[in-house]
């Protein structure tokens, strides 16, 4: 990613003769060895072994497993449930990326002003981020109680928006957006903080000289703030994309993929295949596809957003 968001304190005092001498005298390999050993042991080795079972029909328990070649991947192409899950994964991710980033930006702009409550508001908006996702899921499951006199429905009614009351998690057409909303509620503060760091880096003088030139708030945002926020936007989009694509805990704890298959995503499908259906081989095939998916999407996004940054 691009090097930008660094608080002033973190900026190294750059001596003049920096160029060309970045690497210096290299430390010995031994420095990387302990990390490499642990990483290989905990991530690389198990993932490779796990990926191997994508080509078998292993149930997840017992000794019986046969090599089945690409059969699991062929099955995936014809699996309505997995295809529906891919669609849901994309919808959920798109909703999270757009709304969370947008809301994060608005919140950041709102608290990056002279309003008196700005510090406490930052704390409030960010607080959900430090709470365990599984507990957030419990909380929202309670809030989404479909009874007209409970939770969110009661609150809507109390402020005169009774017409908006819904069966939040039970209506197959709404459930996925309810899940997305919970995630956005939890993470919007995170996006806000990243944008805030970007805003801190926008020089005040630019705004002042623009004001002297008679530029309005909107014009100043468009021509000064927005271009300079490009790196923060890149980070926000990348983080929320990966988060959305691999979202798991909140879905399992709130809807378990239901009603029907309405909130099943690649993560929940591969979990169910492994632990509920006893199809471990197939499950790892889905996991591999998910990994490639995440890699491809991140790569494309990064390439695009970076070109946008340099253009700006």
């Amino acid at each position: 990613m691009t090097a930008v968001i660094t608080p002033p304190a973190a900026k190294p005092q750059t001596p003049a003769k920096r160029a060309g001498r970045r690497s210096g005298i290299a430390p010995p390999w031994l420095f990387a060895a302990p990390a490499l050993v642990v990483y290989a042991l905990v991530m690389l080795y198990p993932s490779i072994v796990g990926a191997g079972s994508a080509f078998t029909d292993w149930s997840g328990v017992g000794e019986q497993r046969s090599f089945v070649g690409l059969a699991n991947f062929q099955q995936l192409i014809h699996d309505d449930q997995a295809l529906g899950a891919i669609r849901n994964t994309l919808l959920l991710t798109a909703a999270i990326v757009v709304v969370q980033t947008g809301l994060g930006l608005l919140l950041a702009l709102g608290v990056h002003t002279t309003i008196k409550s700005r510090m406490i508001l930052r704390v409030i908006f960010f607080a959900p981020m430090v709470v365990s996702p599984v507990m957030v899921a419990f909380l929202w499951k309670y809030v989404y109680n479909p009874a007209p006199d409970a939770g969110l429905n009661a609150a809507l009614n109390a402020v005169g928006l009774g017409a908006l009351r819904q069966d939040w998690l039970g209506n197959p057409s709404i459930a996925i957006w309810s899940v997305a909303f919970t995630v956005i509620w939890q993470c919007a503060g995170y996006s806000m903080v990243i944008f805030l760091a970007g805003l801190e880096g926008v020089p005040q003088e630019l705004h002042e000289s623009a004001m002297v030139d008679g530029a309005g708030t909107a014009a100043r945002f468009r021509h000064i703030t927005w271009p300079l926020l490009a790196p923060a936007l890149t980070i926000n989009v990348m983080l929320s994309t990966v988060g959305g694509l691999t979202l798991f805990t909140q879905i399992i704890a709130m809807t378990n993929g239901g009603p029907g298959y309405a909130t099943d995503t690649l993560s929940t499908v591969l979990y169910k295949q492994a632990f509920v259906f006893g199809k471990f081989g197939y499950s790892t095939a889905v996991a591999l596809v998910l990994a490639l998916f995440v890699a491809a999407v991140s790569f494309i996004q990064l390439a695009y957003l970076r070109s946008r940054e340099t253009a700006a």
Partner: peptide
């Protein structure tokens, strides 16, 4: 980017 489920059982 590796999903944790991939290596979970091994």
């Amino acid at each position: 980017i590796l999903p944790f489920q991939l290596g979970m059982i091994p």
